[in-house]
Design a binder for these strands. Structure first.
Lengths: 240, 240
DNA sequence: CGGACGTTTCGGTGAGCGCCGAAGTGTGCG
DNA sequence: CGCACACTTCGGCGCTCACCGAAACGTCCG
């Protein structure tokens, strides 16, 4: 239906082509996996999706051609990651809109175990999500560093807090400093954008939290509990 | 590929099913048309998309079942509209991400004429877009009523300005007061959310602008030019 | 009541596409 | 140099789905 001569609206054709990239279950699984913000090899994704390497290779070709993924070749490996923040935002939007259905069924024990780890804390592209992400966002709001009542933006106090906490904010580029990202386990917005990414990077770098397994789930360390308590008054109990 | 037993990730299956709704050119054209925020009949959409009524009926069935559209039956008519603000946001996101390609080609004279009217001013779901939307957003920002440098939110002054200008803001519900929506002609964010919708509703109600034809395009009236100039210091020249 | 009209259902058709395995290409390592 | 490994290309299979026209169903109106 896309191959016919475009006697139709070119904008509709473009939108359909873009959406069709995510309209396949295997490609959707790739996009969700890549929401951890890291680069995966083609082989890793093929095993993750349980399809032949040849099949996945074709999928990656389409996703890259469509602009959703960026690729980097290293030797005999092909690394892919989400192309940019806009591509990530699209996947986040789609995932958030799907959640109502998917939230209704924690499958096997193993999956529900992994699910609850994901619900406690995870990364979402390049920022924190899950109860951890919500706790941080709420703490920032309660301390007057982030405003949610009139939109979603840092306050002047918040603008000073980040550098003071040793977290640099890169104000170059068009990416917004703060952006709301709808959390698909908590069903409430958490902090994304430049500030969210900087905070997540710092949290992983300073050992506040560590990744669990190869998934997106993260676990708050004791160091992290102390730091979050001191800096933002987050009680460890809120993270469990 | 979707009909097989779901031995795969259920979240990926849900995302793929959602995306597949927009992955068809005809359905995409419907979603874009419905971005005007109004309800269309099945027949109107069929003519707009240039397909048989029977074909379009099937498309509407899928879009409604998928939760993107809401329908209302009136006599022998079937009215459909975008289901809610989240569905509209998804379509807006997709459209914005597509723009880079589509912006490159204003087709025939007639289309480019309609295109420039759309570029001057239009509605985007339920708020203002195009040069008009950008002008309003910029004016609000310049007057300290809206903050974009730290995210996207009304200021306290902005919170007072709306009621003072006779525009009520409904603060019930989960919809954010202010939200950035990427404009696909201007490539910059304009005001969406509760405040954007209220402003647009007021602008149409008070005769600041009127719709042109059956499309989304709107035209600023002389009354509107005066009001925008007095209230926000927007010069008429900026709207042409 | 009967015709006009908007919408829906149904059968049939053709095109697109996801999947695989086998064979081919290129890289790295012993 | 040659094997192992990661990835890609290709041919073929089977399923899905958008499309149409014809016919059925409702509603409105004269």
């Amino acid at each position: 239906m896309l191959g016919r001569m475009s006697t139709k609206d070119p904008r509709a054709a473009g939108l359909a082509r873009l959406a069709s990239l995510a309209a396949d279950e295997t490609r959707a699984a790739c996009l969700l996996a890549l929401l951890d913000g890291r680069a995966w090899t083609a082989g890793e994704l093929a095993r993750h999706c349980r399809v032949a390497a040849s099949t996945l290779s074709e999928h990656l070709g389409k996703l890259v051609a469509g602009g959703l993924l960026a690729e980097e070749r290293q030797g005999r490996h092909r690394y892919v990651r989400l192309a940019d923040a806009r591509a990530a935002q699209l996947v986040e939007d789609l995932a958030a809109l799907v959640a109502p259905d998917a939230a209704a069924r924690p499958r096997t024990l193993r999956q529900s175990g992994a699910g609850s780890a994901m619900a406690r804390g995870r990364t979402c592209y390049d920022h924190l999500a899950g109860r951890l992400g919500i706790a941080v966002t709420d703490a920032l709001t309660a301390r007057g560093l982030l405003r949610q009542d009139t939109g979603f933006a840092l306050t002047d106090a918040g603008l000073r807090w980040f550098p003071a906490a040793g977290i640099a904010l890169d104000r170059q580029g068009r990416r917004p400093l703060a952006r709301a990202c709808l959390d698909w386990t908590e069903r409430r917005p958490h902090l994304a954008g430049v500030a969210g990414a900087a905070l997540c990077r710092h949290a992983l770098g300073a050992g506040w939290c560590v990744r669990i397994g190869s998934e997106r789930a993260v676990k708050v360390t004791e160091t992290g509990e102390r730091a979050l308590s001191e800096l933002l008054g987050i009680e460890a109990a809120a993270l469990r």
